[in-house]
Design a protein around this nucleic acid. Sequence first.
DNA 1: TTTCACCTGCTTATAGTTCTCAATACTAGC
DNA 2: GCTAGTATTGAGAACTATAAGCAGGTGAAA
Lengths: 145, 145
Amino acid sequence: MDINVKDVKEILKEEGYKLTTQRKAILDAILENHEKHLNPEEIYNIVKLKCPDIGIATVYRTLQLFEKLNIVCRVNFDDGYNRYELIYDTEQHQHHHLICLNCGKVIEVKMDLLETLENEIEREYGFSIVDHNVKFFGYCSDCEK
Amino acid sequence: MDINVKDVKEILKEEGYKLTTQRKAILDAILENHEKHLNPEEIYNIVKLKCPDIGIATVYRTLQLFEKLNIVCRVNFDDGYNRYELIYDTEQHQHHHLICLNCGKVIEVKMDLLETLENEIEREYGFSIVDHNVKFFGYCSDCEK
DNA sequence: TTTCACCTGCTTATAGTTCTCAATACTAGC
DNA sequence: GCTAGTATTGAGAACTATAAGCAGGTGAAA
Ligand SMILES: [Mn+2]
Ligand SMILES: [Mn+2]
Ligand SMILES: [Zn+2]
Ligand SMILES: [Zn+2]
């Protein structure tokens, strides 16, 4: 289910890119924090521990590359950063996110349950849907009390 | 149904703000382009026609104020701009957007159809939903051909 | 080992947005 | 209407996330 380093090496190679030390370190940082939706700066700080000479430009460049190759995808929580997460083979659409308005926690929702709505949209608007982006704002169970 | 200048004047007054010439001009620009999801620069250019001395800082400040007072809301189409649209009294949740990956057109969807999903989420995660943000990416009827 | 395209870190540039501040415009109380 | 006090403004500088330019480094293929 999870994408791993070997898979990424394959994907890069196929497109003529190399899995350099820096790229592997960035990938590791994302793999080891797969639920955290890191931004470039957070990734930079994690990677610097093992790879102290890395420049932040490399982090940005690598994330763009990974995004182009569908290894990661960008998510936007409207906090002024681009954030990134792995794309899993098992999901054909991006999963949904619940964002707590009180504590800022982000919860992932694997249920899709959009078929009815998507069918309605395709029928009503003649719009053929490729992907979606769904966020719910509210209060998590901890903050609701 | 539509919010109007008088309503806004009321809302501002209640909170101790004034409906200045500049604020009215910005509101007008948004009202007259209610389907367009303008960004601050576009608003600035429209407003400058009737209000040539306005500074762009005033546009940014006013949009922030309108957002705080729930007169407009910010929408993000991942094109590097904040965009703004009026909030209508009739909708309790933000409407959905269809974004064409080919021509960039943005279509509004007034059907909500998220009750099943939202109920599932409230039940399964104990997360109490206040609002949502739903975007569909794909190809519009013109581009599909 | 030589070649050559890829890749890197450093630095500078870009662009959307916010901040600072002095000047101006309103408003309420006289 | 005048005055005092507050809200608002425009201009420009500052900020911040990200991208671009460049010269040197790296590593696989010949
Ligand atoms: Mn996620
Ligand atoms: Mn809209
Ligand atoms: Zn919470
Ligand atoms: Zn289209």
